[in-house]
Simulated assay, not measured.
Amino acid sequence: MPFENTLTILELKGSQLRQLADYIATTHGQPVAGMTLTITNNKAQDIRIKGQAIEDNKLYKLVTYDYLANGGDNLTLLTQPVSRANYPQRMREGLIEYVSELTKEGKKVNAELDGRIKIN
Rank of each mutant, 00 (worst) to 15 (best):
M1Y: 12
F3G: 10
F3S: 14
F3H: 14
E4Q: 13
N5L: 08
N5H: 13
T6P: 04
L7K: 13
I9K: 04
I9G: 05
L10C: 03
L10W: 03
L10A: 04
L10T: 02
L10G: 04
S15C: 13
S15K: 15
S15W: 09
L17M: 06
L17R: 04
R18L: 11
Q19L: 12
L20S: 03
A25K: 09
A25C: 10
A25W: 07
T26R: 13
G29T: 05
G29N: 07
Q30D: 09
V32A: 07
V32H: 05
A33D: 05
T36A: 08
L37S: 06
I39Y: 08
N41E: 15
N42P: 01
K43V: 15
K43H: 15
A44D: 07
I47E: 02
R48V: 05
Q52C: 02
Q52L: 09
A53H: 09
A53Q: 11
A53V: 06
I54W: 02
I54M: 04
I54G: 01
D56P: 12
L59F: 08
Y60H: 03
K61L: 15
K61H: 14
K61G: 01
L62E: 04
T64F: 09
T64I: 12
T64H: 09
Y67H: 10
L68I: 15
A69I: 00
A69K: 00
A69G: 00
N70W: 00
G71N: 05
G71F: 03
D73C: 10
N74A: 14
L75K: 10
L77Y: 12
L78P: 01
T79R: 07
T79I: 02
P81N: 07
P81Y: 08
P81R: 06
P81S: 11
R84F: 00
P88S: 11
P88N: 08
P88W: 01
Q89T: 14
Q89L: 13
Q89E: 15
Q89K: 08
R90C: 12
R92D: 15
R92C: 08
E93G: 06
E93P: 01
E93A: 13
G94Y: 08
G94R: 08
L95Q: 14
L95S: 09
L95R: 11
L95E: 10
I96C: 04
Y98S: 13
S100T: 15
E101H: 07
L102E: 08
T103K: 15
K104H: 10
E105P: 01
E105A: 15
G106T: 08
G106L: 07
K107I: 03
K108W: 01
V109C: 11
N110R: 04
N110M: 03
A111H: 05
A111Q: 05
G115T: 01
I117N: 00
I117E: 00
I117G: 00
K118F: 00
I119K: 05
N120Q: 03
